[in-house]
Design a protein around this nucleic acid. Structure first.
Lengths: 151, 151
DNA sequence: GCATTTAGATGACTAAGTCAAGTATATGGG
DNA sequence: CCCATATACTTGACTTAGTCATCTAAATGC
C-alpha cells in the first residue's frame, strides 16, 4: 500500500522542483537584458563554439525547432557573428563557425553570465556551494541516463 | 591558488546545470500541448488553488510581470475558469477564486502533467528515483535559503 | 489634504517556440 | 540509373511568454 504512495510523493517532489526551477530560470534570463544578445543567440553561439558545425548539430544539442533555429542563425549571420559556408560533402548543409566578432560577443555574454552566477554563489557558504554543485551533477547524471535508455 | 580555481569550477558547474535544465523544461512545456491550456495559465490556476487570492499574491509567487499576469487573468476570467470579485478591504484589488470549471481544468492539466512525470520516473530504478528527489530537494533548500538572505 | 505608493489595466513591443508547406539535396533499393 | 523516401534547411503565419512605459484609481503616510 505504501508503494503507490511513495510514487505519488516522488512525482509531486519532481513537479515541485520543476515549478521552482522554472522560476529560477526566469530570473536567469534577465541576465542577458543588458547585453545586445538574447538567450537564444547565446545558446547557439555556445554550441558552435563547442563543436557544433551544422544547424542539425545545434538543433539536436539544444532540442529546438529547425524553423526557430534557422531564423536565429540568419540573424546571427546578418549581425556578423556567425559565418556560413557551403558544406563540401552535403549540398543541403552549411558549415558554421564563429567570426572574430562572434567570439568576442560570446565571450562578453559568457563573462556577464559567469559574473551573475558568481554573485549568487558568493552569498552561500563554501559547504553549501559544494552541496549545490554535487546535487546538480547528480540530477544531470540521473536524468541523462534515463535519456540514453530511450534511444 | 586553488581557491579561485574551485570557484570557477563551481560557476561552470552551475551554468552547465542551468543549460541542461533549460532544455529539460523546454521538453516539459510540451506536456500542455494536448490540453487547451498553456503553462502560464496552469501556473496561475495552481497558485489560486494553493492560496493566492489576489493578482499581487500570484505575481510574487511566480515572479512574473504584472502586465503579463493581468492579461493571463483576464483570459482565465473570460474562459470562465477564474472568478474575480471586488475586494472588501482594498478597492484596487480583486478576490480571485477558481470556478467549478477552473477546478476541473486544473485537475485535468494536473493529471496530465503527473502522468508525464510518472512516465519519466517509471523508467528509473527506485534507488535512482530516490536520489533524484533528494538532490532536487537539496537544491531547492539551498537556493531558497540564499533567497531569504537577500531580503 | 496632498505627495507618494501600490494594484491593476492597456498599448506596443521583443523573444521564444510551433506547425505546415516548400525547395533542394542525399540515399537506398529495385 | 531511376525513383521513392528521407533529410537539411527556409519561409509564412501563428501562439505563448515576457517586458516596459504609461495610465487610472485607490490606499497610505505624514
Amino acid at each position: 500500500m505504501s508503494g503507490k504512495k511513495a510514487a505519488e510523493e516522488e512525482i509531486a517532489a519532481v513537479r515541485r522542483f520543476n515549478r521552482f526551477y522554472t522560476r529560477e530560470l526566469g530570473i536567469l534570463r534577465r541576465t542577458f537584458f543588458d547585453t545586445p544578445w538574447t538567450l537564444g543567440e547565446v545558446r547557439v553561439l555556445y554550441e558552435i563554439k563547442h563543436g557544433a558545425s551544422t544547424a542539425r548539430d545545434i538543433a539536436r544539442a539544444l532540442n529546438v525547432d529547425a524553423a526557430y533555429l534557422s531564423r536565429l542563425l540568419s540573424k546571427l549571420v546578418k549581425e556578423g557573428l556567425v559565418a556560413r559556408k557551403a558544406s563540401a560533402h552535403d549540398g543541403r548543409q552549411y558549415e558554421l563557425s564563429l567570426t572574430a566578432r562572434g567570439r568576442a560577443a560570446y565571450d562578453r555574454a559568457d563573462e556577464r553570465q559567469a559574473a551573475q552566477t558568481q554573485s549568487v554563489l558568493a552569498r552561500m557558504p563554501a559547504g553549501a556551494r559544494k552541496e549545490l554543485v554535487d546535487a546538480m551533477a547528480r540530477i544531470e547524471t540521473l536524468m541523462r541516463t534515463r535519456g540514453e535508455e530511450k534511444r
